[in-house]
Design a protein around this nucleic acid. Structure first.
Length: 624
DNA sequence: GGCGGTAGAA
């Protein structure tokens, strides 16, 4: 107490008189009360119309989130210059009020004075604000102003625009801005790489990364060409080859983004290569990088490696813990996830809403109903988190997957207000697993109403009808979807053999070894049937002859990839495949049989989780 | 005389 009083006394007794000393003290202030005191002294010393000190003070007030104080200071100043205006726009934008930043920007622009017109700094502040609001009109208008104002070649504005367009869902425009930049630096490239990754344009994202690290990467071309097949655009890769990149090398931000792309894609060998790059560049200590690595290993199937890394990180934060907990969840290791969750609690790391999402997900993937319910209750009671829609969806998932559809419905009724799309979609998924047509019909009606453009719900509902042998119902749902011009994401499966990715689509004959692959499938089918396998045709097809159905199911991408994997690896080797959608019921059953008749472990990652097939049994316990 | 763009977990 005495010490604190002494500090105040010193500060108060030293009354600065010059502008320089004021500026110095303003930038040194470490608490909001220092600033308030300095403000008083400024007024006392007649600095109220001095623009330099006012600007500094405004800036520092925003640093301490004193938005109201900063604002009134700005508006009490008679003639703010452009710099002071920029400080206002930036301060508002970075204090979670991007809308008021945009509003302030508009007002300032309407003033006719040339001095107050926006400059390159202004746009670097206001464009990210428009991006976080997601306002298309404002965004496009800002881009127009940038062009008219002649700021197109500004690197800061360029990356802000690229990020803006990705957030507006316009990767074409992001690409255009990127292509038209006369010069590119690391941040600009990073913005492009991470934006492409977020839009699932992995091959493009990896392509840019390749340009950045070309000198150090061997046999890169083979890798890229494989991944390119998985996405929309093979042409993209050749575009990158034309691209002129100035000597830019990857930094931790680039690495983080590219690891996230590897994780989503299941590109383990590329991820491992990036891990090597991390070591040689000494990026290990960056917590973003190490967390992204854990996530990559977990999502690429190497949960043991993920845990090993986790243990070696000294500066774990909440995101690191969450990533590891989710990793266990994906692999169906619910008990491990629970253990880690409790360790996290006792480690003193602050829990977040995402921690609870991760652990609840883990419970649902492992069928831990009681544990999930307990954690859901304790979330509010012991940790003060009010459940948001996603937490409720997790609970519905936990109950639904466990076959407790009645409880799930009761739970939904207890949610105040509109339960929301994710909850109905979760319930519909549970109906698929437990073949409940009535609840499914109810859930799908809600979904068709709230999200009519999503093909996934129509497919799911149609499959549920089919599994109930209600073929007219299934056909009707598909017809509605067709009328609305909706199309299904094509399923594909990726398998890496000797560090090279191979991608298969359903009924694919494009692989050079196709004849051998189909012959292997034929051979497997015989052995599987001997073991008791019957093709599960009902969920994928309707009103087709039984034999024809069987033939069509036969060539799903999962099976092609597995057959290729069996052909290309030594007996006993584990087979790892990655599917972009959820694995279908027939492929799930078939994989169990294949694991038995070939005595191989098959690990399959689908859009939701991992399945580990061993000796005829799947680790998911048949609900997924 | 002082302001700038990009990253990890569901």
């Amino acid at each position: 107490m005495a010490a604190a009083g002494a500090v105040t006394t010193v500060a108060a007794s030293y009354v600065p008189r010059t502008r320089d000393s004021f500026l110095h003290l303003l930038s040194k202030a470490v608490t909001l009360s220092h600033l308030t005191e300095l403000h008083a002294q400024l007024l006392h010393n007649g600095f109220q119309s001095d623009i330099a000190t006012t600007t500094k003070l405004t800036h520092r007030l925003f640093d301490f989130s004193a938005v109201h104080h900063a604002r009134s200071l700005f508006f009490s100043f008679p003639e703010p210059d452009r710099f002071l205006c920029n400080v206002l726009v930036k301060g508002l934008a970075s204090n979670e009020s991007p809308r008021s930043a945009i509003a302030a920007f508009k007002r300032l622009r309407e003033r006719k004075s040339i001095d107050l017109g926006p400059d390159n700094f202004t746009y670097a502040f206001v464009i990210p604000a428009a991006a976080s609001v997601g306002d298309v009109k404002v965004g496009i208008s800002l881009h127009g102003q940038v062009i008219v104002g002649g700021f197109c070649s500004d690197l800061f504005i360029g990356s802000a625009l690229i990020d803006l367009y990705f957030k507006l869902g316009r990767d074409d425009m992001a690409r255009k801005v990127f292509d038209e930049m006369p010069e590119r630096d690391a941040v600009l490239c990073n913005t492009m790489v991470s934006g492409l990754g977020r839009s699932s344009r992995f091959e493009d994202s990896i392509g840019i990364f390749r340009r950045m690290s070309e000198k150090t990467l061997a046999s890169w071309n083979a890798m890229i060409s494989g991944y390119a097949q998985n996405g929309l655009t093979e042409a993209a890769v050749s575009l990158f080859q034309e691209m002129q990149m100035s000597n830019v090398s990857p930094n931790p931000v680039t690495i983080t983004s590219i690891l996230s792309a590897c994780a989503q894609l299941g590109a383990l060998s590329l991820g491992q290569w990036v891990h090597g790059l991390i070591k040689s560049n000494k990026f290990d200590s960056n917590i973003y990088v190490s967390t992204a690595l854990i996530d990559m290993y977990a999502k690429c199937g190497s949960i043991v490696e993920a845990r090993r890394l986790f243990e070696s990180i000294p500066n774990k934060n909440d995101v690191t813990w969450n990533a590891m907990i989710s990793g266990y969840g994906l692999h169906g290791h619910g008990q491990e996830a629970l253990k880690l969750f409790h360790e996290m609690v006792s480690s003193g790391t602050p829990l977040t809403r995402i921690t609870f999402l991760s652990i609840l997900h883990a419970c649902s993937h492992s069928g831990l109903v009681k544990e999930g319910e307990q954690i859901f209750k304790s979330m509010k009671r012991d940790h003060g988190f009010e459940p948001i829609s996603e937490h409720n969806a997790c609970m519905v998932d936990i109950l639904g997957r466990a076959g407790k559809l009645k409880e799930a419905l009761d739970f939904i009724e207890g949610i105040p207000g509109d339960p929301g799309t994710p909850i109905w979609s979760t319930l519909l998924g549970a109906c698929m697993v437990h073949k409940d047509t009535n609840v499914a019909r109810m859930a799908s009606e809600k979904l068709f109403e709230s999200d009519p453009g999503n093909m996934g719900y129509y497919v799911l509902m149609s499959n549920i009808y089919s599994s109930d042998k209600n073929y007219p119902g299934a056909a009707f749902v598909r017809q509605v979807a067709k009328k609305r011009n909706l199309s299904k994401t094509p399923g594909c499966t990726l398998i890496e053999i000797h560090q090279k990715p191979h991608v298969f689509k359903a009924g694919d004959w494009s692989h050079p070894l196709s004849r051998a692959i189909y012959a292997e499938l034929e051979r497997l089918n015989g052995k599987m049937k001997e073991a008791g396998y019957q093709a599960e045709t009902m969920t994928s097809l309707h009103d087709v002859e039984e034999e024809e159905k069987e033939l069509m199911v036969n060539v799903h991408s999962e099976k092609l990839a597995i057959a290729f994997g069996l052909l290309s690896t030594e007996p006993g080797t584990e087979i790892r495949i990655f599917k972009n959608l959820r694995i279908c019921l027939d492929c799930h059953t078939a994989s169990k049989y294949i694991s038995r008749v070939t005595q191989r472990v098959i690990v399959a990652r689908d859009a939701n989780r991992f399945h580990r097939f061993e000796d005829g049994v799947c680790s998911c316990g048949d609900y997924w």
